[in-house]
Design a protein around this nucleic acid. Structure first.
Lengths: 241, 241
DNA sequence: ATAATCCTATTGTCCGACAATCGCAATATG
DNA sequence: CATATTGCGATTGTCGGACAATAGGATTAT
């Protein structure tokens, strides 16, 4: 006998609230920056109680689709930074290892550098030099400043690629680079000098639009990071954070 | 006058509930597969009401840290697929264009293929051939089967790299490849034959552990996708989905 | 042993209430 | 007149209790 009825889908009301609002955001009915009606109004519109609406709102909130600005809830589509932050948090929870992160860096970043050599604007390159200057100027014992400048250098490259997909991916790597570097820099005395040198060569390659050279130096730069691990005696198979 | 008091941090209780449980998951106190106590018990432990607990649970839920299995809530750390799904959904919401996705594919996948040539096991390669066989065997007018097989081929490569970071990134690209291909295949008659050919060459390169050849054919494979866009008259600057 | 039935714990939803807080308007102050 | 202060109202955060629906386990019947 053939089935007479479809299994009827029952979804909690709070999920329906979530999806309804999500759909409006997706189709542009609720544009970026618009603010949601008050909870009471949503109750009325959806015909559910405030508790239910609030559970739905919590889902939206965590998805990164809305943000509380003071008392109002404003629509904000997730940008690259949001995606990257969520991803790297998940990676950390998943116990991703130094080796996996480094491996990804070594695979992706030389190609990113290759693109950067073609795409970075003069302003982008100037910003890179500024950041390099900050790194060079940082006190030798201020590891945090060194890490910050090194990461910012990567960030600038990622942003200069003019591609939100790659930006999000590289950005999530960048956040994890930060964690890695923190552990390396304290234990590897001349790390900062080596970083500064690599950055200098990279900037020169970018300026010359020399993709091969940029990729090459980026590969060296990343390889150096691994050497840093060894010197600092970091276990490559340990989880980051 | 110097400030006499720190600004005291006040966080909604439902956020504290969320963070408390999240922390327990992060530090391993709540291992994967464990199940959370009932809402009533959580109320008691945290000293808040059920509404509050539930709002916290909704946050956990959307973060992907827990999953409802029937009535119980079980702990489940987000895996690569979760990260990829969340990321590609965000990309879609952000209006990422075909061009951005293709650009990322063209940048990342040849390098992935290079790694794959070194890392894929015999079983991995056999699975690739099986998938290719499925694609070849699919009826010419069954676009969906063709898309599925083509995407699965990419999935197998990504999984074979043995790196969760790269897996998550490639996987999110794969999900978007699906969207792209769907639009291309209907409009590009011999797309399937070209895909099958590229897949064959890739498998051969993998089998020979020839990284350069693998990267080369992958680049061609991706370039073909762009030609498909042109033939199918897809606007590269249009948003995916 | 398997299938059908009942029970109970738990979830999903609702209602009503109140304190805390934010935004804004009305007011006071210079 | 411009700026700071105060007060008010709307809105959120939290509470407590309530009830129907349901999933899962225990119990009974086949």
């Amino acid at each position: 006998m053939t089935k007479a009825f479809e299994p009827l889908i029952r979804e909690p009301a709070y999920l329906k609230v979530f999806r309804a609002i999500e759909a409006r955001i997706a189709d542009g009915a609720l544009p970026d920056g618009a603010h949601l009606p008050t909870e009471a109004e949503l109750c009325e519109q959806f015909g559910v109680t405030r508790s239910t609406v609030r559970e739905g709102l919590r889902l939206l909130e965590q998805t990164g689709l809305v943000q509380r600005a003071g008392k109002k809830i404003v629509i904000k589509r997730p940008d690259s930074a949001d995606i990257a932050a969520a991803a790297s948090k998940s990676f950390a929870l998943g116990g991703v290892t130094f080796h996996e992160v480094w491996d990804a860096l070594a695979t992706l970043y030389p190609e990113a550098a290759r693109l950067a050599a073609k795409r970075l604007s003069k302003d982008d390159i100037a910003a890179l030099e500024d950041t390099r200057a900050v790194l060079v100027a940082a006190p030798a014992d201020d590891h945090e400043a060194t890490v910050a400048a090194a990461v910012e250098f990567f960030q600038l490259i990622a942003r200069g690629l003019d591609n939100r997909v790659m930006l999000a991916m590289l950005q999530s790597l960048n956040m994890m680079i930060g964690e890695s570097l923190r552990q390396v820099i304290a234990g590897a005395p001349n790390a900062r000098a080596r970083i500064a040198n690599a950055q200098g060569e990279l900037v020169a390659a970018f300026r010359a639009h020399d993709a091969d050279r940029a990729a090459d130096w980026m590969a060296k730069h990343i390889a150096d990071l691994k050497r840093g691990y060894v010197v600092a005696k970091v276990d490559m198979n340990a989880a980051i954070l």
